[in-house]
Write a protein that binds this DNA or RNA. Structure first.
Lengths: 219, 219
DNA sequence: TCCTTTCACTGCACTGAGTGCCATCGACCT
DNA sequence: AGGTCGATGGCACTCAGTGCAGTGAAAGGA
């Protein structure tokens, strides 16, 4: 019945738009009582995101069973990949939903609250790992936000491509950038080259970001 | 009349809670017609955040008049400080609102959509500045998210202190961390020292964060 | 087989947010 | 005075979401 409601809802949403579709329309098409709709979905918006609750639970479980010696930043990146996996499970559905949420402000707001809950899950885990270090809580919040932003950036560009691009590669690349900003590199290239040492020279007072640009290209 | 509505609304919200207060209650206390409420505030939630619209406009204007040669990361940090300024203008009101939004899920969701608009403003500015560079759009999104997260972390800890802590110092510290992660330092020391050039040498394959730690301390 | 319990589903009535429409009233202009 | 315009108020309506009670079918126990 859940699935029937989701199917009926999306048919109508795509036909005549989200706001132009009432809950009564949905239940009429699905052939169920109005009251049952609200048994399965606490609000009209929830029918658009039917599987995020499960995915959030999965993410929390994934973080909870992290080994003690795992790199926390890498761990939250892997957790973020779970969300991508959920989107990739059903590309056509995800792309439809993307176009829907892009147009309807109410759905965008709802999506934000969903994303926020993912971000909080990551931040809570990081707080536990970094809590002792100086500025641990600050670091945890900032890293979680950066990881989520990187993930969403890649996810959205994949959705804009109608699911044709390689989602995994895009997310890997985006998360690698986020990781690099916070003190880890995904795979330290250990070359055999004789030129094994990099030297950077800069005038004192040079804006640090200019120096860093050089460093990054050198590495 | 706007102010009268806000005052009446907050009196009732604090007395009996947000959800237990209807719009009819508010307009009855303020002595105005129900229709006028929705003339000034498009929704019941908007009355809780009466000045964010203006602040968002200010932020966009601030970013639009940025000098071409400004460091973009520092610029968005300064833009974020505008939001702190708005909160600090009226500490008592901000603290009350904080406790309200912490309890009411609907208000938290609304706040998220407000924060999201700030973040988009910062990201749009950064996209304009970094758009040409490789991964410019990704960088813009991630930096904006990190700056907002750092700002909010400091803002929230100030709100939790009931406005007693030094908000400016906390935000400066948090933003300095965010800046440091993305390649700028808050105040580049322009020394007179004869040792005006810094040389950093590192073996290829060294984790980037180790190199960065050396750079930061050297500068 | 019959009775009972349980549970998913339905219908109904109600609250409250938000909107469209029109009447009103006062300020300001000519 | 007469007219115009903008702000306001009142009214009726739609629709999301909730509480309550009723129904029926499946499960279980004597």
């Amino acid at each position: 019945m859940r699935d029937a409601l989701v199917a009926a809802a999306f048919r109508l949403f795509l036909e005549r738009g989200y706001e132009q579709t009432t809950v009564d329309d949905i239940v009429a098409l699905a052939g169920v009582g109005r009251r049952s709709f609200f048994r399965y979905f606490p609000s009209k918006e929830d029918v658009v995101f039917p599987d995020h609750e499960r995915c959030l639970t999965d993410m929390k479980a994934f973080l909870a069973r992290s080994p003690e010696d795992a790199d926390p930043v890498r761990r939250v990146c892997d957790a973020a990949r779970l969300v991508l996996g959920m989107y990739a499970e059903n590309p056509a559905f995800s792309v439809q939903r993307y176009h829907l949420t892009k147009k309807v402000p109410g759905l965008r707001a709802y999506e934000l609250s969903v994303v926020w809950r993912y971000e909080r899950a990551l931040a809570e885990y990081l707080r536990g790992r970094l809590g002792g270090r100086p500025d641990g809580i600050l670091r945890a919040d900032v890293i979680a936000a950066a990881v989520v932003a990187a993930h969403n950036n890649a996810l959205r560009s994949w959705l804009r491509s109608d699911g044709r691009d390689d989602a995994g590669a895009a997310v890997d690349h985006a998360l690698a950038y986020a990781q690099s900003a916070f003190g880890d590199v995904p795979a330290a290239p250990r070359g055999e080259s004789p030129e094994d040492v990099v030297v950077v020279a800069a005038r004192r007072g040079t804006p640090l970001w200019q120096v860093l640009r050089e460093i990054e290209s050198a590495f």
